[in-house]
Design a protein around this nucleic acid. Structure first.
Lengths: 226, 226
DNA sequence: GCTCCAATTCAACGAATGTTGAATCATGCT
DNA sequence: AGCATGATTCAACATTCGTTGAATTGGAGC
């Protein structure tokens, strides 16, 4: 008799490398958070068996750290370029580019930001330190940019650059994360437009708050292209 | 022979009402998040059996909504008092009081903020809408306060009051939530002091960003007492 | 064509979870 | 004193989770 059509056991025609698994993991981690995301859900997203994950990674935690190691360096590298002291443009424009960078790297749907959200505060022991060091590495570049602004006389001298960096980046993450969800309800806008408007309003407020001369007009901000 | 000392089955000498269970739930929800918090952990925190929770509540979700229903109205009521149009004080001072209110209601350890964090974006269907409506109720009061500031000529006329309210409150939540955790590492400060300094710096930046005359000095801000 | 290896799946384990039904006790009312 | 009722616990259920070991197979190299 014909055997009850079992799917084949061995390797599929389309191989699956670690990167594809990481993409699926990012999707699910971003949706559910590290703890709530199940390996079975990740496997379903990737279209494979949960056990395959253990062929490529040691554990769920190892998968998470591998994801960080894959996604953070490009962001930090781009930030480093933006913080190049040779860049003579207006500081406000450079900060606008920082927001755009975060938008492109973390704004995607659903993106890394859902992944670093929450874990930084509530994450397990090792994870927490890991993420913090990554985030701090990124923030350092932005802080340097602010200090260049002070040296150029465009930013007020008495600014607390560390806290201001925290403000700028944290709120940009909130804009990317929360605004698309609540925009239809409180703004009556489609998600993308709400994010664009929020980013503009935020940089305008922030710049006025830190500028050496807050009455000087802000240079025109180009659209954030992603 | 003596029966192997079993703890008694029936009611304990100290009765446990729903409120005590909610306090324990808030502690654990704040620490772990809605999904990761287990009823067994809540019961351990309260010092009772998990099954007792089902005597007082229908389910874990019902417990969560009961917690919201208990903790949000007092916050909104206090905000409503702050937004009283008869309050003639400087708008910056009133906004400072708003931050103080959030500090007192949500800053405690661990407090409600850990509870609304994350669920607003990633929460399950019903939960998400529930929290959003509660949060919007609170934000409406703050927005009214900003609009009074415009009417009094203290706040710039072209301000987007809805987005600005979002900025003010969301960043205050981040200050309460994240700063205590990362302060020892990046600021070299004890948590409480980092929060106090962060709140001051944030209101100064925010006010400068929204003031009709950003060069006018900010009135002195009293300490936030909790 | 044979062999070997890398990639994949299956089936199961132990632990933890939300939830329930029955059992037990303390207390207040009559 | 007796009884009903409300408060509490116990033990178990089905489900899901992370993880593992063995089994299976496609393809590369010879």
């Amino acid at each position: 008799m014909p055997s009850p059509a079992r799917p084949p056991r061995g390797p599929k025609p389309t191989r699956m490398d670690a990167d594809q698994l990481l993409d699926a993991a990012q999707e699910v981690f971003g949706r559910e958070g590290l703890r709530a995301a199940s390996l079975r859900a990740i496997a379903r997203q990737a279209g494979c068996d949960p056990a395959l994950i253990y062929y490529h990674f040691d554990s769920k935690e190892a998968m998470f750290t591998a994801l960080l190691a894959k996604r953070f360096p490009p962001l930090v590298e781009d930030l480093r370029r933006l913080a190049d002291p040779a860049d003579e443009r207006h500081t406000a424009l450079r900060l606008w580019d920082v927001l755009g960078l975060y938008h492109r790297h973390l704004g995607g749907d659903p993106g890394l930001r859902g992944l670093i959200r929450g874990e930084i505060v509530r994450g397990a022991e090792g994870i927490q330190e890991l993420i913090q060091s990554r985030v701090i590495g990124a923030a350092t570049q932005v802080r340097a940019l602010l200090e260049q602004g002070i040296a150029r006389g465009e930013v007020r001298k008495d600014l607390h650059t560390l806290l201001s960096t925290f403000f700028l980046l944290k709120l940009q993450l909130e804009i990317l994360d929360v605004l698309p969800v609540i925009a239809p309800r409180i703004l009556g806008l489609p998600p993308e437009q709400a994010v664009a408007e929020g980013e503009r309003a935020w940089l305008q407020l922030f710049w006025r708050g830190i500028a050496a001369d807050p009455t000087a007009p802000l240079p025109p901000l180009p659209a954030i292209h992603d």
